[in-house]
Amino acid sequence: MVDKVADAINTIKTNERIGRVECDVPSNKLIKSILEILKSNNYIEGFEEFSVRYKKFLKIKLSNKINGIGVIKPRFTVSKSNMTKYEEMYIPSKDFGMLVISTTEGLLTNKEARAKNIGGSLIMYIY
């Protein structure tokens, strides 16, 4: 497990495709922030943290609303002026899906970053 975010996103994608209702991923601060964004945009129903011995995990309740999800590698740096280029590259339609961007104000969606007029590093896409 080199990239924990990529492993978590891959677990979510796999379990969505086979129709499961929930899945477990290892817990860390970045993954929790990503799941908060997914929950606020209704891509997942919710999540809760639990621990097995000394390791923490997240139990994610899936809603089967994800058509495509993936991690963007390498983590491109996006300015506010060239965000449209990456939206066209990773999102199939203008109002269908979103990019998650790591900014100085935390993780934001592409719409929030555009509204705040800031850029950052691309983390993932979802639609």
Results as ranks from 00 to 15, higher is better:
residue 65 K to F: 03
residue 60 I to L: 04
residue 30 L to F: 07
residue 54 Y to T: 15
residue 43 Y to D: 00
residue 45 E to A: 06
residue 53 R to P: 08
residue 43 Y to K: 03
residue 64 N to W: 03
residue 32 K to G: 10
residue 20 R to H: 09
residue 39 K to N: 04
residue 23 C to Q: 04
residue 55 K to T: 11
residue 66 I to K: 04
residue 47 F to Y: 13
residue 46 G to D: 05
residue 46 G to P: 06
residue 54 Y to C: 09
residue 53 R to F: 12
residue 21 V to R: 11
residue 48 E to I: 10
residue 23 C to H: 09
residue 47 F to N: 02
residue 16 E to M: 01
residue 17 R to D: 09
residue 25 V to W: 10
residue 35 L to I: 05
residue 32 K to C: 07
residue 54 Y to Q: 15
residue 42 N to D: 13
residue 41 N to C: 09
residue 25 V to M: 06
residue 15 N to S: 10
residue 20 R to M: 05
residue 32 K to S: 14
residue 27 S to P: 08
residue 44 I to K: 00
residue 23 C to L: 05
residue 49 E to C: 04
residue 34 I to F: 08
residue 50 F to Y: 14
residue 43 Y to T: 06
residue 16 E to L: 00
residue 19 G to D: 02
residue 66 I to E: 00
residue 47 F to G: 00
residue 18 I to C: 09
residue 58 L to W: 09
residue 20 R to Q: 10
residue 41 N to E: 10
residue 57 F to K: 10
residue 26 P to H: 04
residue 47 F to W: 10
residue 36 E to H: 13
residue 63 S to G: 07
residue 18 I to K: 10
residue 66 I to Y: 02
residue 35 L to D: 01
residue 20 R to G: 02
residue 67 N to P: 07
residue 43 Y to I: 00
residue 66 I to F: 02
residue 57 F to S: 06
residue 17 R to C: 06
residue 42 N to F: 12
residue 19 G to L: 08
residue 41 N to T: 12
residue 24 D to V: 12
residue 58 L to H: 08
residue 20 R to A: 08
residue 36 E to Q: 14
residue 66 I to S: 00
residue 57 F to T: 02
residue 32 K to I: 14
residue 63 S to Q: 03
residue 60 I to Q: 06
residue 40 S to P: 09
residue 35 L to T: 04
residue 65 K to G: 01
residue 41 N to Q: 13
residue 50 F to C: 03
residue 62 L to D: 01
residue 48 E to V: 07
residue 48 E to H: 13
residue 52 V to R: 15
residue 62 L to Q: 01
residue 18 I to F: 13
residue 34 I to C: 09
residue 19 G to S: 03
residue 61 K to D: 10
residue 44 I to H: 00
residue 63 S to R: 00
residue 27 S to K: 13
residue 67 N to H: 10
residue 34 I to P: 05
residue 30 L to M: 01
residue 52 V to E: 14
residue 41 N to W: 02
residue 20 R to N: 13
residue 61 K to H: 06
